[in-house]
Design a binder for these strands. Structure first.
Length: 190
DNA sequence: AGGAAGATCTACT
DNA sequence: GTAGATCTTCCTA
């Protein structure tokens, strides 16, 4: 069960979003590691996608979406850092937003980063999980395809049903449903 | 300088 | 459960 290789991310964003469900997201902090299972994702495309950061074409703030797959793409919305992984076919544009995790390792540390009454609220939302894992723009562009990396994703054997819906919070969405989540998992955001 | 942003929290009905 | 205020960052003018 090693790190997911770059090829994993060199596919259609929808496929990557689905396949990231159940995988283990690892955040290396000091000598410790914070870890959670990915339970909710959304796929974003290029200029043809009205909800995408890349909608208005190549800009300085979205250039990572046009670049090498398998790197972090991080931006801020309403004082929340959004954690994306660049994912698309060669010469294409896209990314996958990580929307929720099920905490596994370093839960005490996460709670210190983000005090919360119920454990189900610790990482169940894109802004919540970045706070719990101490992720911000300083990690923008970091590759997730090496164990050495401060953030990386490990393969995992898991069995579950996948649910899907329209993306959340999007003003104008595509017709396709591009939000994916693990059915019945209590850490999926509401 | 101004405003919009893929969200979150709180305070209600 | 739902509406409204508000958190900050970075783009665009």
């Amino acid at each position: 069960m090693g790190v997911l290789p770059k090829e994993f991310y060199e596919r259609d964003p929808e496929a990557v979003a689905r396949d990231l469900l159940g995988k283990r997201l690892v955040r290396r902090l000091d000598s410790k590691a914070l870890e959670g299972i990915i339970v909710e994702t959304e796929a974003y495309y290029g200029p043809g996608d009205p909800a995408s950061r890349a909608h208005r074409g190549l800009k300085s703030y979205n250039r990572l979406m046009f670049g090498e797959p398998g790197r972090l793409f991080i931006y801020n919305v309403h004082n929340n850092w959004m954690l994306n992984i660049v994912a698309h076919r060669p010469e294409d544009v896209g990314a996958v937003l990580i929307r929720a995790l099920e905490p596994r390792e370093g839960i005490e540390q996460m709670k210190r980063n983000r005090p919360v009454e119920e454990i189900t609220k610790l990482t169940s939302g894109p802004g919540r999980l970045t706070r719990a894992l101490k992720i911000d723009k300083s990690l923008n562009g970091v590759p997730v395809t090496s164990e050495m990396s401060e953030v990386h994703v490990l393969d995992n054997d898991a069995n579950f049903e996948i649910g899907k819906s329209h993306r959340i919070g999007v003003k104008v969405d595509l017709e396709r449903e591009l939000r994916f989540f693990i059915k019945g998992n209590p850490f999926v955001s509401k």
